[in-house]
Structure formats: structure tokens, C-alpha cells
């Protein structure tokens, strides 16, 4: 198979092989869902409802997925620079951009099983898994959330190359964004100004969509639609930024490696 589809399929296979050869990079994915133990433990004394525990379980899932996108998926391009493969791959006639995008998305999607892990850990430690009222909608919500995380990773991976010192700012993309995305308290309880910022962030709507699908409450599809639209927009911006990165590398404005 040749063409874009061929490049995409080979890129997925290649990235999976790279990940499987260093399983340590997936360790945070295995461990971070255990935050559910911290969350459940913090509220356990107050006899929490199954809805509250589910909501906290979803928070652990989103944290794991977003953290994985920020710290692992966005590093695909960084590793390419470090190993010198970027230099070589840029001499391919076409398809490197497609390959990079596909590989970053592949790594992000590896966070999908975390949702099951969260449910199992919750069940084992506190006797409560995730209570999902509308499974199909919930499935779509999980996919939307992962797509948004992948889009974020794309954007960040470009920034990591273009902006000197971006790596040290990576830390600010976790907890501040969890607060902004309403992972604990709903985003509408944020102060004025921050709330508007939160409205433009895909994670806000993805979390709302996930919770609505789990609780079977109305408005979930609208939230998911908003999350998907914002994810597509940031995915497009991320792809354009990667394209720009590759162009700036050719112009010699950015170094192939640090």
C-alpha cells in the first residue's frame, strides 16, 4: 500500500513498536490512574454518592490522558530531534508531516485503557467502579477527550521546538489546566475572567460531556460537540505549527537538535 494511507499505517505500526520496546514510558499511564485512590480516600469519610465517585474517577482518567499527551505524546518530535532521525526523515519525498501527526495521535490514544483501569481500581479499593448511564454517549465522550488531548499534544510538540524554554513551562500545563477545565469543581464556579478562558478550552467541555454521559443528564451531546469543535481547531493549529517547524528547520532558523 502506498500513498498517505500507507504512510499512516506504517507510522502507527512503527510508533507502537517503539513504545513496546520501552514500556517504561507508559509507566505513568499505569500509575496515574491510581490518583483515584487519593481522590476516593479524600472523600471517603463523607459517605460519597456513586455519582460523586464516578465524577472523581473520570477526573483521574482525564488527568492521566492529558498528562500522557503533555509529557509523552508531545515528545515524539523531540525524540526525533534527539536521535537524529528527523534529519533523515525530512529527506523523504513526502509524508513526514503526516507520519508525525499520526505517531503523536497513536501515542495519545494509548491512554484509552486507563478508563477501564480507573473503574477496576475504584472497585477494588472502594467497592465502586464507574457508573455509566449512557454507554454509547460515554464511548463517544472518551474518544472526543482523547482526540482533544492528541490535538493538545500536536500543538505542544511544535511549541517545544519553536519556543526556547517551552519545556520548563510544560509543568504549568497540568494542574492549572485541571482547575481551568473544571476537573474538580465545575468550570462555572470559576471566577469571572478565568471562566471565559475556561470556555475556550476543549477539556472543559470534554469533562462536562463525560460527566453528562455517565450521569445520563441532558446537554451532553452539546458539550461533546463543543469539545470536538475545539479539538479540531487546535488539531489544525497544531498541524500547521508542525508544518511551520519543518519549514523553519529547512531555513536553518531552528536547530535540528539542542
Amino acid at each position: 500500500m502506498t500513498g498517505v494511507a500507507g504512510v499512516a499505517i506504517h507510522s502507527v505500526r512503527m510508533q507502537l513498536r517503539l513504545v513496546l520496546r520501552r514500556l517504561g514510558s507508559l509507566a505513568p499511564l499505569l500509575i496515574n490512574p491510581l490518583y483515584v485512590v487519593v481522590f476516593f480516600g479524600a472523600v471517603a469519610a463523607h459517605r460519597p454518592s456513586a455519582e460523586l465517585l464516578t465524577s472523581l474517577g473520570l477526573t483521574a482518567f482525564v488527568m492521566a490522558a492529558w498528562g500522557h499527551a503533555v509529557f509523552t505524546a508531545s515528545h515524539v518530535i523531540d525524540e526525533e530531534r534527539f536521535s537524529g532521525t528527523m534529519e533523515v526523515n525530512l529527506t523523504a519525498p513526502a509524508g513526514y508531516l503526516v507520519s508525525l501527526v499520526v505517531r503523536i495521535v497513536t501515542v495519545t490514544v494509548l491512554a484509552a485503557p486507563v478508563i477501564a483501569e480507573v473503574a477496576v481500581v475504584g472497585l477494588l479499593t472502594h467497592g465502586t467502579g464507574l457508573v455509566i448511564r449512557v454507554p454509547f454517549q460515554f464511548f463517544v465522550a472518551v474518544l472526543t477527550c482523547l482526540a482533544g488531548c492528541a490535538a493538545g499534544a500536536l500543538l505542544l510538540s511544535g511549541l517545544l521546538v519553536l519556543v526556547r524554554g517551552a519545556r520548563t513551562l510544560q509543568n504549568a500545563l497540568t494542574y492549572p489546566f485541571y482547575l481551568l477545565g473544571g476537573l474538580i469543581l465545575p468550570h462555572f464556579s470559576l471566577p469571572e475572567g478565568l471562566r471565559q478562558l475556561s470556555d475556550a478550552f476543549f477539556l472543559t467541555w470534554a469533562v462536562e460531556g463525560l460527566r453528562a454521559a455517565a450521569a445520563g443528564s441532558p446537554g451532553g451531546w452539546r458539550d461533546l460537540g463543543l469539545a470536538a469543535a475545539l479539538a479540531v481547531a487546535s488539531g489544525a493549529a497544531g498541524t500547521l505549527m508542525l508544518q511551520r517547524v519543518l519549514l523553519r528547520l529547512r531555513r536553518g532558523e531552528v536547530r535540528f537538535h539542542d
Partner: peptide, 16 residues
Amino acid sequence: RLSPRRNWEYWAAMCR
């Protein structure tokens, strides 16, 4: 982390 075969397969795909 990849073998010569896998390295070359990927490159061949990139070169269509």
C-alpha cells in the same frame, strides 16, 4: 530500538 528491517520498512513507506 527498532531492527534494521523495521527501520527500512518505515523509510520505504515514507518514500512511497
